[in-house]
Design a protein around this nucleic acid. Structure first.
Lengths: 186, 186
DNA sequence: GTCTATACCCGGATAGAC
DNA sequence: GTCTATCCGGGTATAGAC
């Protein structure tokens, strides 16, 4: 695989764990066996790296979500699987890339920030559509869009809080809330 | 006021805006008119500064919450005011201190992390008690503790997401969710 | 308690050879 | 595309005078 791709993978992993600020061109290069100058060749400035990571994350996300919609037997199961992704991150000591970068927004360019907004929108639109698809089984009468916002916010917040502790309490509560929104949780 | 106190205030502000990692002893000192060596006199290492900030935040929080409980006419109004604090942060481009530090957990010591957990617990216990106080007006039958977890998670997540964008959508949705939990929202 | 001065390290970034 | 070498700025931290 090309160096560039391997750099992006390693960078994504590192950013989800410790943030962009903590990631240096030197250590990133070392991770895949090249020097910092080579990293600069692919990503001239740090904001270029950030942009690549955000774009890459969004692309992967889109295809994952598309798959999830197509292969799930119900809106509930699709959304529950989405929640599962976050629980997975949590177990690896990672934050969602979007959340981590959002917490470091002072080092992002305007373009970075706009793309990041796009990532969150992608998730919220997908969630909104899924809640709409499961309308009939919903026990709450809030707009789908509101439910989508709330679920995403809870997930991002929960695994931020959960990072410090050694319990899944936080995410489990969110899961309970989600379940309470559906009449059939099979 | 003593330098130490002023340093703590300035540091809290800076950390909520840009994080601990971005805050240098030099710029912090400059903020209150002393040199970096003087900052080191009060806080030998960065983790000492972090500890002071966390302790200070918790103390302020405790007294604020006590006041809120005592002076509110209902559980709903107390909780709504709590939500208001987060909306206020958001308008100032700040994150809750706990959330910001949680996102930077790689630079915290074990002691820092434990104290930080205490801060989140403080909020969750208070919220749990308030939901318990408002039991009669609740329209959801989830445990108060679960509601507390979910509300706090949503708030932390919402203003993380909201930081990038120029809209309050995210936090408004959380407010709508909260309102939907109470039968009387007067 | 605060200062000046300084040691030391690490990060981003670039120039130029291969 | 990758390397070596290097510059420069800025960060943490300490020693010692006042």
């Amino acid at each position: 695989m090309s160096s560039k791709i391997r750099l992006e993978s390693a960078a994504t992993e590192a950013v989800q764990k410790n943030g962009l600020k903590s990631l240096s061109f030197r250590t990133l290069g070392a991770e895949v066996g090249v020097k910092s100058s080579s990293v600069h060749y692919h990503f001239p400035e740090k904001s270029d790296l950030a942009q690549a990571l955000i774009d890459r994350y969004r692309t992967g996300l889109c295809s994952d979500l598309k798959h999830l919609s197509a292969n799930s037997e119900s809106a509930y199961s699709a959304i529950a699987e989405f929640v599962g992704v976050f629980i997975g991150y949590c177990n690896e000591g990672k934050l969602c890339l979007g959340a981590m970068l959002a917490s470091e927004s002072e080092l992002l360019t305007q373009a970075n920030r706009e793309s990041l907004t796009g990532v969150f929108n992608e998730m919220q639109v997908w969630l909104t559509d899924e809640f709409e698809r499961g309308r009939d089984e919903l026990t709450v009468d809030l707009p789908s869009r509101t439910l989508a916002h709330c679920l995403l916010s809870s997930l991002e917040g929960a695994h931020l809080i959960a990072r410090n502790e050694r319990s899944d309490d936080q995410l489990l509560s969110v899961k309970m809330l989600l379940d309470s929104w559906f009449s059939k949780v099979n």
